[in-house]
Simulated assay, not measured.
Amino acid sequence: MAFTLATWNINSVRLRQGLVSKLMTEEMPDVLCLQECKSPVEKIPLEVFRALGYTHMVARGQKGYNGVAILSKLPLEEVGAHDFADLGHARHVAARLENGVTIHNFYVPAGGDVPDREVNEKFGQKLDYLTQMRDHFHAETPEKAILVGDLNIAPREDDVWSHKQLLKIVSHTPIEVEHLGETMDAGKWVDVTRKDIPEGKLYSWWSYRARDWDAADKGRRLDHVWATPDIANAAHSSRILRAVRGWEQPSDHAPVFASFDL
């Protein structure tokens, strides 16, 4: 069974349903995982997506914030969701395909602006969220699984436009990178994107604050596709669709793709 999967922080699925439809029509991933849907589940425009062949969905949502959804052309069943760090946020949902592959869709907290949990509660929540993710994957070692989403951390030096200048900026601080690494190690996860594209600068997010995001190119790789070792070698053709960041009224994230031959 071969399939292509994409992950995309859409920054409001209702506001940008036209962009989701455009991606579905032009790129046709078999499975599309969205984060920051900012919508109750019942208000996600599923009928629009069903008309394009995405007849299956599992999701968690809330009004105006967070929210994760897995839209699929392939049959899938929900296998649960976790509220790590007990935040009461819709930040995780998991589903299983008919071939037995489990897909985890995550939206890790951004962590605010100050990388100090003593003065910034949101940063502490982010670290706690990652710690509980780590502990979960230690307790239940995943098999035949894919983890995707906006993990809100750019771990490698070449995942940001300037390693030196971002060392004290939330999303690239050493403590965040350490926490993400521990989470990855706990599940023995393989970074599929970097398996396929091992060298060079690689970004999936560019700030709205830049007057010309493309020319400035001050990006970060915040969006990830991981797989467990038993299926990681079946992954290929990873890519980030940078051009999507330039669509009209875009999300500040670009979708990340990977294909699997299983």
Rank of each mutant, 00 (worst) to 15 (best):
K73E: 02
L222D: 02
H224Q: 13
A145T: 10
A258K: 08
S39Q: 07
P255K: 03
D230C: 02
R14V: 11
R134I: 02
M28I: 01
F106I: 07
A59L: 06
C33E: 03
N105H: 11
L52E: 12
E140D: 14
H224S: 12
S162T: 09
E47Y: 04
T141E: 11
A227Q: 07
L52Y: 07
V108P: 00
Q249G: 13
A6M: 15
A2H: 13
V177D: 08
E27G: 01
L23V: 13
A216K: 07
P40W: 00
T25W: 03
G219A: 12
V31G: 04
P142W: 07
P229C: 03
V58A: 03
A154F: 09
A85E: 05
H82R: 11
G80P: 07
N9Y: 00
I240T: 11
R245M: 00
D159G: 09
T25H: 09
R16D: 06
V41Y: 08
T102K: 13
H172V: 04
L5E: 07
V225F: 08
G124Q: 03
R96V: 09
R220K: 14
G187E: 10
K201A: 11
Y208T: 01
D217H: 15
Y208Q: 10
P229K: 09
P229E: 10
V79Q: 10
F260W: 11
S162C: 11
L130C: 03
A90K: 00
S21L: 14
A81M: 08
E26R: 12
H253K: 06
F49G: 02
L97S: 05
I169H: 13
C37D: 13
G149Y: 02
R221N: 02
R96F: 05
H82Y: 14
S238Y: 06
K218M: 12
A216Y: 05
R16M: 02
I197C: 09
P142F: 07
M28W: 15
V41W: 01
W161C: 04
A232Q: 05
D116Y: 04
P109Y: 03
F49N: 00
E178Y: 08
E248V: 14
H82I: 03
L180K: 07
D191V: 02
L166F: 07
K218V: 00
A139N: 13
H253M: 04
M24S: 09
R220C: 08
L180V: 12
A95F: 00
G219D: 08
A215Y: 12
A110R: 10
V31K: 01
A154G: 00
L167Y: 04
L180W: 06
V101S: 02
G61Y: 04
V68F: 07
A94V: 00
E143F: 07
V101D: 03
P229W: 02
A186C: 13
T193S: 12
V20Q: 01
H172G: 04
I197E: 00
L262A: 10
A95P: 09
A85G: 00
S207Q: 08
F84A: 01
T4G: 06
T102M: 01
I153V: 15
S21H: 08
L127V: 11
V68I: 06
L23C: 13
A235M: 10
K38I: 01
P250A: 14
E47D: 15
R209T: 12
L166G: 13
D159Y: 09
R96K: 12
L167E: 11
D223Q: 06
D223K: 04
P229I: 12
G67W: 09
V41A: 10
F106C: 15
G67I: 11
V170M: 05
R194Y: 07
Y129T: 11
S204T: 11
A81E: 15
